[in-house]
Design a protein around this nucleic acid. Structure first.
Length: 731
DNA sequence: CTCCTTTGTCTTTTT
DNA sequence: GACAAAGGAG
């Protein structure tokens, strides 16, 4: 028996082996421990590890779980299948891809590739606008998650989506191209697995029989297809153990259905529900801030986390004047904490959007604070890396037209749009891939044929190298054989030096991968690259974590800074505009509950964004966090020391539909211009709130405006003076 | 065909 | 402000 130090409720959940079980696990309530303990308990009771499936949200979480189980059980852990839904599906599909008309070497297209395909496809679809590729892809993803074909999608949405027809046409063309490329996108991994199960009951049965016990972590962030997979796989044994917390559902924009967890008892009749409400992570002060925030949400199961830990330090809210002051405060505080004995690795700066990390990177670099940024640009998304991997993709899967297009003129070979268009046309006419057009020969004009023959030889050489070389050597060969090495080394562009180093980094990446997976080939490496998650790079070194809130789901830190707490940023402008901030609030809840001992919340009065200075009201979450009891200490130096007319906007507390506030552009004193203030314009005033300009008098610095505020009547302002507390509301 | 300039879009989050 | 896409000149 293994001692996990479980409390009573946890113990009950863990030892309840059979049937459908839902564990509602509040933040920091020992969710992962319960899951691990459960799997160990199953093995202890005689269940073969081979019959256990454990699904996690990221590959990193999967590996950690595997390690934990291994530590407890020893060698037995190998049999337990732990992975993400996507990795699981990829593995299952590789085994039986032929039965769906794909080869087992099918390529996984990430969003980057999907977008390129959509863009390309738009050229062939009448009425499609390539600029709207993101919108199309969004609809396509929704359709796929709902398991709708293009035709079904059109029927379902023709009354609500204005260009449903165009979307359906793009969707169909996209599907056709993906199939021709022997490629699947992220949604396909799930959808095609469901299709495989429906089409081939023998395959489904094989997996059903194998997985007697199915365990799913982070169930609040599963989508409809994932739910369906769980249902299908569990149909024989009915042993489904899911763990989640609807308050931490933060991926609905990606199709996650909170319903999956809320309706679990309905979908699995007789399901038992356990609630874990004791938090082992955070101090009381931090927890009450979290509870104060989340209780404003309506669609949730009532639960209140409690902690047996002490009150701890008060939560601190720093009211900064500018985004620079905000970064300064964080830098200073980190320094102070570090001097006081805290480790950098126990500190995290959490942001709502990737673009907010920059100032912190600058400031930390300046002050010698080691840091790592998670979320945002990833190594494998760099253009030169993507392009180089294009050669690998093409060798593994010769039908991969997207890979072909990436590398045909990289490095430059004088092959332009017209030659490529010729290839595409010939491919379309003969129903073959782009590469096949070159291999067959005689399908192009003599000039194009000649230009492309060099590339054809390169592709051919790389393709045969794939069969002969070990992954690391092959990767090195790709870099030299493609001509990239020479081109980049001889280049005069100083950036190319850097690019070359990044590309060389690929060889190391393959080497590392090979060490961890000695049996795996280069194709497995490609797959792992497609399915990496942001937190995968996190390790034990001593650095401050700068990350998006999404990227730190499931992690914890002693000291947490949540920055950018302004309306329009956190919550985001679109959430505010749509009047739906519940998911933003859950995100805030996740952010707060990452903190174990110290929590700092920050906002800035003015912030430099999109090349402009903007000013947004404080986030409603600050007021919510404080709740009835003032457990939050305000240390913002800005408000107190300000001149009267510079006072920042008051809380727009709970005001629904608050739009983004962009401050009026600062004018030089010698050329005042308040031309944006005209009759009918909606403005926000620091003290009086929202108002409408009713009348203006005068010009330039003498201009005054009469503004009507709701419930306050009309007030008159000299704009030159009032400009610091007035901003125009951009709808 | 390539290079340079200009223009437009972006910033919500990612398996 | 940064970067990609588009457009024009060589």
């Amino acid at each position: 028996m293994h001692d996990f130090g479980l409390n009573n409720e946890q113990m009950l959940a863990v030892n309840d082996a059979d049937g459908a079980i839902l564990v509602i696990a509040g933040a920091g309530s020992g969710k992962t421990r319960v899951l691990t303990a459960r799997i160990c308990a199953l093995v202890d009771s005689g269940v073969s590890p081979y019959n256990i499936l454990a699904i996690t949200f990221t590959n990193k979480a999967a590996n950690e779980m595997k390690e934990r189980i291994a530590r407890e059980l020893g060698y037995d852990a190998d049999g337990v299948w732990t992975s993400t839904f996507h990795s699981m599906c990829a593995r299952m599909l590789r085994m039986d891809a032929e039965r769906l008309g794909y080869t087992r070497d099918f390529t996984i297209y990430t969003d980057l590739e999907s977008e390129r395909v959509v863009k390309r496809v738009c050229e062939t679809v009448a009425g499609a606008d390539a600029k709207r590729k993101g919108v199309y892809l969004d609809h396509i993803s929704r359709a796929k998650t709902a398991a709708l074909s293009p035709e079904e999608y059109f029927e379902e949405t023709k009354d609500v989506v204005t260009d449903a027809n165009t979307v359906a046409l793009v969707y169909r063309a996209y599907e056709k191209e993906l199939k021709a490329c022997n490629a699947m996108d992220f949604d396909d991994l799930l959808l095609k697995t469901v299709e495989l199960f429906q089409k081939c009951p023998d395959v489904l049965e094989r997996w059903q029989r194998r997985f007697r016990y199915i365990n799913v972590d982070e169930f609040q962030d599963t989508n409809r297809l994932q739910f369906r997979l769980v249902k299908m796989l569990s149909a024989v044994w009915g042993n489904v153990f899911v763990v989640g917390d609807e308050d931490q559902s933060i991926y609905s924009w990606r199709g996650a259905e909170i319903r999956n967890i809320l309706d679990f008892p309905k979908e699995f009749p007789g399901a038992k529900v356990y609630k874990l409400e004791q938090n082992y992570r955070s101090t009381k002060n931090i927890l009450s801030a979290a509870n104060n925030v989340i209780k404003h949400n309506s669609s949730r199961n009532e639960k209140t986390l409690w902690s047996a830990l002490g009150d701890g330090q008060e939560v601190e809210y720093f009211d900064a004047r500018t985004d620079r002051d905000e970064a300064d405060f964080v830098t200073r505080t980190i320094n102070r904490l570090q001097v006081g004995g805290e480790n950098y690795r126990d500190m995290a700066v959490l942001v709502r959007a990737n673009s907010l990390t920059r100032l912190f990177e600058e400031s930390f670099t300046l002050h010698g604070i080691p840091y790592k940024v998670f979320g945002g640009f990833r190594f494998f998304e760099r253009k030169e890396i993507k392009d180089t991997l294009g050669y690998v993709r093409l060798a593994v899967n010769p039908d991969d037209n997207d890979a072909f297009l990436r590398v045909v003129n990289y490095p430059k070979r004088g092959i332009g749009a017209s030659a490529v268009a010729e290839v595409a046309l010939a491919a379309e006419r003969n129903g073959i891939s782009y590469l096949e057009v070159l291999k067959r020969g005689g399908l192009l004009s003599a000039a194009s044929e000649k230009k492309l023959s060099k590339f054809a030889a390169v592709a051919e050489a790389i393709s045969s190298a794939l069969k002969e070389m070990k992954p690391v050597d092959f990767m090195q060969y790709v870099i030299t054989g493609s001509g990239l090495e020479d081109a980049l080394k001889l280049s005069e562009d100083p950036e190319d030096r850097n690019r070359y180093e990044n590309i060389e980094g690929l060889v190391d990446a393959v080497r590392n991968f090979e060490e961890d997976n000695p049996e795996a080939g280069i194709a497995d490496f490609l797959q792992s690259v497609s399915l990496v998650s942001d937190s995968d790079g996190m390790d034990e070194e001593n650095y401050v974590t700068i990350a998006t809130v999404h990227a730190v789901k499931g992690l914890e830190f002693d000291n947490v800074f949540i920055i950018g707490l302004e309306e329009g940023i956190f919550p985001t402008a679109s959430a505010v505009a749509n009047g739906d901030v519940e998911e933003e609030r859950r995100l805030m809840y996740v952010a707060i509950t990452r903190a174990k001992r110290r929590l700092y919340a920050l906002s800035a009065y003015s912030r430099f964004r999109f090349g402009k200075v903007e000013s947004n009201p404080k986030s409603r979450f600050i007021a919510e966090m404080r709740g009835d009891k003032a457990s939050v200490r305000v240390t913002g130096a800005y408000f107190a020391g300000m001149r009267k007319e510079e006072k920042k906007p008051v809380f727009s507390q709970g005001k629904k539909g608050s739009p983004v506030f962009i401050s009026a552009p600062k004018r030089r004193a010698d050329a005042p211009d308040f031309s944006e203030f005209v009759k009918g314009v909606v403005v926000e005033h620091a003290k009086f709130g929202r108002g409408i300009v009713r009348e203006t008098v005068g010009e330039g610095e003498d201009k005054t405006a009469a503004i009507e505020f709701e419930g306050l009547g009309v007030k008159r302002f000299a704009l030159a003076i009032a400009i610091n507390s007035l901003s125009i509301v951009k709808e």
